[in-house]
């Protein structure tokens, strides 16, 4: 093995650490190609100790953008059960770097974002909820085996949290 005479490995380590810190301060976007993967990874078999909220949105959808701050505030919710939020973006894959990431950065959204890229929309809309016509924004709430679905906008944090907590009733 070659012996390093310089402090190159230390410099490299510091550089990578700084780079990692830099990267991790940016938003994280998970791209999912197949709705079945979304369902198995995010929707089924979830603990009843946490309320899971899935907000279907897109950067081009004005009412979605308007209600996003209320969803972002859910991270500060301190109720009996914690709320875990996943922002499900329906932006196009080609728009990730052009629109989605700049949007998340500008609005300082640190929450997990899943970009659902499955093109078989006619099939998976019904699997999210049969009552969904396909218009966004739309919100799915899951707690254990219980599911609630809302094809609507929210106009205040209180309206949102009161609606989400219906799952506990």
């Amino acid at each position: 093995m070659k012996k390093y005479q310089s402090n190159y490995p230390i410099k490299a380590f510091l550089f990578l650490t700084l780079l990692w810190m830099q990267f991790s301060s940016y938003s994280q976007v998970v791209v999912i190609e197949d709705y079945a993967d979304f369902e198995s990874e995010y929707l089924v078999g979830r603990s009843s100790d946490t309320i899971y909220v899935f907000n279907f949105w897109a950067t081009w959808c004005k009412p979605c953008v308007q209600e996003l701050p209320y969803f972002d505030s859910l991270n500060q919710y301190a109720g009996a059960k914690p709320i875990s939020l996943v922002l499900v973006s329906l932006d196009f894959k080609t728009q990730i770097e052009k629109s989605l990431v700049p949007f998340l950065t500008k609005n300082n959204i640190k929450n997990e974002v899943v970009l659902l890229a499955d093109g078989k929309v006619n099939k998976w809309i019904d699997e999210v909820d049969p009552s969904w016509s396909g218009s966004i924004p739309a919100t799915l709430v899951i707690n254990g085996d219980k599911r609630l679905f809302f094809e609507q906008s929210f106009h205040s944090y209180n309206e949102l949290i009161n609606t989400i907590l219906k799952i506990e009733k």
């Binding site: 994280q28 998970v30 999912i32 004005k62 990730i96 700049p102 609507q152």
Partner: peptide, 26 residues
């Protein structure tokens, strides 16, 4: 997670989106 592609994305300068709308459900 085999079909998931984890992307760490470098942010760039964003641009504004106007926020004026409300909607009702039918």
């Amino acid at each position: 997670m085999k079909k998931l592609m984890m992307i760490l994305l470098v942010g760039t300068l964003g641009y504004g989106t106007s926020v004026m709308m409300t909607e009702k459900e039918e």
